[in-house]
Nucleic acid binder design. Structure first.
Length: 657
RNA sequence: GCUGCUGUAGCUCAGUGGUAGAGCGCGUCAUUGGUAAUGACGAGGUCGGGAGUUCAAUUCUCCCCAGCAGCACCA
């Protein structure tokens, strides 16, 4: 086989090699040092092992550990080779499932007779280090389905066998092996050529996970770990984790006295006055934006009869997430049953606002000239979320959506979608989020409506995106049961992503609930419904804001914008006057004339309460009618004349819209 | 809902088979101070709930409940 192939390097240079040349050989032919640093290669856009033969002309590049791909390959090797083997060494009866890489690390799912706990991690980690010390080379073999199954059967690995059995291919199964050890792992690769390329790693935690992600299946132990090129990278990462923990809105919310939860109302928020001030600022800001965008605000019932939800389809498709209330007078006898009679009629708390909005639309006769109707509601919804899903403000059972439904003609979809996207992005900018991605989520298995309607709906959203030039990725099967949706995902200050805004195109509900308008032809037509939200849930969005700003909210959102703190009791009277002037100027201000030192007050209002502005008032300020201004996060003190200071602060406290 | 871990003062957490401790916070007093914790004293707890083992349980066992992490789900 002396056929020649042409290899094109990233810089465009080409080189000739005999067919069957390996990535390692190519690297060696370029430079010995390069070969040493290589851990894998990319051949025509596909990652391959260094030892894979290349048999046709190819675009070729070398992957080193210093690239993102290289780091991911290293993590992959750490989990599949070190972690998996360490577990098998320590617990020979363990069964291996899968071990992929994830953001910042990796995990491996294993089944052990006794679930592993965090205490086992140190032992496993030690074993991993021992294995790494061997610096063993990693070999790969290609195997037929039968041989692969036999190999895993011999080792008692039912999960691996399941993966192989479900695979489409008949051969070419890649098995990786360290040196001459008995241990093998199935992997699509590539892997490091040798364990000596492994950097630093740390096992983080264990958690339960279902085999194949299906809650009907066996629960496995998932071992999480992280791996980096060197100690510094690991340290930085651990530091970032600490930072995320510090920003936890549950912790900050408690410290700042914003809200609390208690067991009798799990998943529902007790908003304290300060937390509710944030809420009101946000809600009022949204209301101003919606009004300016020609939305009309409405309010609809919490409790509605099951017949209503049957019509909307929620009773059939969504009932397990709904709170259902029997329409029966409860029994008041002591120790008696709660209900004397078997309830026959049921009401349900609304989990969504849309069907109610259709009812408002249906009152009276609508003309094509009335459309679009943009109906908004800060709608309080209840959903019976699984206990384990509840998480602070991020996932609650009672939440308020900044919801709206746009009833329009088909010819108005494009413009309405475009206007919505512009509005959403502009609002995010005001709220401090500039970084976002967009997804299109298509028809799920559980759905109502014909395939033709779904085709039309999905196409409609794609057209709108194309018209604005917004890039999007498609998530198959993630749509709502009544229509496809567009999702806006914002990225916060420490790089975490949150799905918030959504635009859902719905041809189904108007039909189900028989909403019509009279067209220019005098005939009845179906309106299209665009379900849309920008914040998503106000509760959750406040949680995101708190974490994004680490509690240091921008002035216009801060529950207390300015604290007037006295240095000495002799300044109390003047401080009271300053406080009143701030209130008169519409600034949310507090007065602190406690018998405490200024150091104490500064710490409390800054570090604990995160108040953006502090006016320190001593005898000097009272004498000169000034204020000493201190900003959150700064040591600087600015002395300004009282009236001037308040005037500019009032200006600064204005909401962005 | 599933798996694992946790539950002690308002908060953060020590601790023990013989009914409990710290720091912060809170209250009182002293202190009137100049920018990220002034000092002293004091009050405050059926040790998540129930059952069991035991002479004795906050401690050990079991069952519930709740919280946390992850899974599944999702705004």
């Amino acid at each position: 086989m002396s056929e020649q192939i042409t290899i094109t390097l990233p810089d465009g240079a080409t080189r000739e090699y005999a067919s069957g040349v390996t990535g390692l050989e190519i690297a060696e032919s370029i430079a010995k040092s390069l070969a040493k640093a290589s851990i894998a290669v990319t051949v025509n856009g596909e990652q391959r092992d260094l030892c894979d033969p290349i048999t046709q002309d190819a675009q070729f590049s070398i992957i080193k550990l210093d690239s993102d791909e290289g780091l991911e390959i290293m993590r992959h090797t750490v989990t599949a080779q070190l972690l998996a083997r360490a577990v098998k060494n320590l617990y020979p009866e363990a069964k291996l499932a899968i071990g992929p890489t994830i953001e910042n690390g990796f995990y491996y799912d294993v089944e052990t007779p006794k679930p592993l706990s965090e205490e086992d991690l140190a032992k496993i980690e030690k074993e991993m280090r021992k294995l790494k010390e061997t610096n063993a080379p990693i070999h790969k073999s290609l195997n037929s389905k039968a041989d692969t199954l036999a190999a895993f059967e011999k080792r008692g690995e039912p999960y691996k066998m399941d993966i192989v059995e479900r695979a489409d291919q008949e051969d070419g199964f890649q098995l990786y092996q360290q040196g001459d050890s008995e241990f093998i792992d199935l992997c699509h690769g590539p892997h490091l050529p040798s364990l000596k390329h492994v950097g630093v790693f740390k096992l983080m935690k264990v958690a339960g996970a279902y085999w194949r992600g299906d809650s009907n299946n066996q629960m496995l132990t998932r071992i999480y770990g992280t791996a980096w090129r060197n100690d510094k990278e690991l340290k930085d990462y651990l530091h970032m984790l600490e930072e995320a923990e510090k920003r936890d809105h549950r912790k900050l919310g408690t410290e700042m006295g914003l809200f609390h939860f208690q067991p009798e109302a799990q998943g529902s928020v007790f908003w304290h006055e300060k937390g509710y001030l944030i809420w009101q600022q946000l809600e009022q800001y949204m209301r101003r934006r919606l009004t300016a965008a020609h939305y009309q605000e409405v309010k609809t019932p919490q409790l509605m009869h099951s017949k209503f939800w049957e019509q909307s389809g929620h009773w059939q498709k969504y009932r397990e997430d709904m709170f259902v209330v029997p329409d029966v007078v409860p029994n008041t006898e002591e120790d008696g049953p709660i209900f004397k009679e078997e309830p026959k009629e049921f009401l349900a708390l609304k989990p969504m606002n849309c069907p109610a909005h259709v009812q408002i639309f249906k009152q009276g006769i609508k003309s094509y000239k009335d459309l679009p109707i943009r109906m908004a509601e800060f709608g309080c919804c209840h959903r019976n979320e699984a206990h384990g899903a509840l998480h602070g403000l991020m996932r609650v059972r009672q939440f308020t959506q900044d919801d709206a439904h746009i009833f329009c003609r088909e010819d108005q979809i494009l413009e309405e979608s475009i206007e919505f996207c512009k509005l959403a992005l502009d609002i995010y900018k005001d709220l401090g989020f500039d970084d976002y991605t967009v997804t299109l989520e298509t028809r799920p298995e559980q759905r109502i409506g014909s395939d033709e309607l779904w085709d039309k709906a999905e196409q409609g959203l794609m057209d709108a995106m194309d018209a604005i030039g917004l890039e999007y990725t498609i998530n198959e099967g993630d749509g709502a049961f009544y229509g496809p949706k567009l999702g806006f995902i914002i990225r916060d200050a420490i790089g975490r992503e949150w799905g918030c805004a959504t635009l859902q195109l719905d041809f189904n509900l108007p039909e189900r609930l028989d909403a019509t308008f009279i067209g220019s032809d005098g005939e009845r037509h179906r309106p299209v419904m665009l379900h849309r939200a920008i914040l998503g849930s106000i509760e959750r969005f406040i949680g995101i804001l708190i974490e994004n700003y680490a509690g240091k909210l921008p002035l216009w959102l801060a529950p207390v914008q300015c604290v007037v703190a006295t240095i000495t009791g002799s300044a109390d009277e003047y401080a009271k006057e300053v406080h009143q002037k701030l209130l008169d100027a519409g600034i949310r201000a507090e007065l602190d004339i406690r018998n405490e030192k200024i150091n104490y007050k500064v710490r409390e209002h800054s570090a604990v309460n995160k108040t953006p502005v502090l006016y320190a008032i001593g005898a000097r300020e009272a004498e000169e009618r000034t204020v000493a201004i201190r900003r959150l996060g700064s040591q600087a003190q600015n002395v300004e004349a009282l009236d001037k200071a308040i005037e500019s602060l009032a200006q600064e406290c204005k909401a962005p819209y």
